[in-house]
Amino acid sequence: MLRDITLGQYYRADSVIHRLDPRVKIVATFAFIISLFIVKNFIGYLIAGLFLAVCIRLSQVPPRFIFRGMKTIFFLLIITMVFNLFLTAGEPIFTFWKFQITKEGIKLAAMMGIRLVFLITGSSLMTLTTTPNNLTDGLESLLGPLKKVRVPVHEISMMMSIALRFIPILMEETDKIMKAQMARGADFESGSIINRAKNLVPLLVPLFISAFRRANDLAMAMEARCYRGGEGRTKMKPLIYKKRDFIAYLVIVLYLVLIVVMGRILFR
């Protein structure tokens, strides 16, 4: 029952996008998000949409996986669009009681909608094509310069990858403890909210205990292998830029230039 929830939503495939260095993908995603906020006209969104469509095509991820992420933001999307539609001042087109829809409102609502959809699609594409471990590796490397100002970048990324690694384990554990308590007559599905919260105690206590036990064991195992933080630590699979990564960077730069130039040309 609980296994249905997936957090790391990596889709296994062997595409150009999958093979790209995670740093490229993180930078590209950021560039893409920034470009969405620079753009102020529909031509710009058309370019962004095309860029995204090509990337999705190249990634070999079936579109339904990408749009699955849309479900979670559906309400946010609707609320944003409705607010923009009704609360933007301007030239009224349609008036109903106290509400009025303006020309500017329609335009803004459409833009906001497209912006949100592209934003989620773009970032889903990154998480779908990059394993969680690669993602944290990439982040660690990109945030590397922050070490100079004493930000414990390695430790943070290590914690992130451990946390990600433990999600499925804890899921399984929850499922097991839940069943064990159900075998003793526990009820997790009915009753008032307060009762339900109370009924969670027999689930949460063993779960916390097992999480602490696992954390302890892992710490011991790391200690036994002489782990002592990131200083001087080498990687089994170091991130090395290849030719395709430079090409990808070039594509991103070209894309940004195109977006900015198009905006300038049309709004001079």
Binding site: K179, A180, Q181, R184, P202
Partner: peptide, 11 residues
């Protein structure tokens, strides 16, 4: 039903 490692369910 007594599950495997039943001591993990004590709370």
């Amino acid at each position: 039903l007594v599950f495997q490692y039943p001591e993990h369910q004590l709370f």
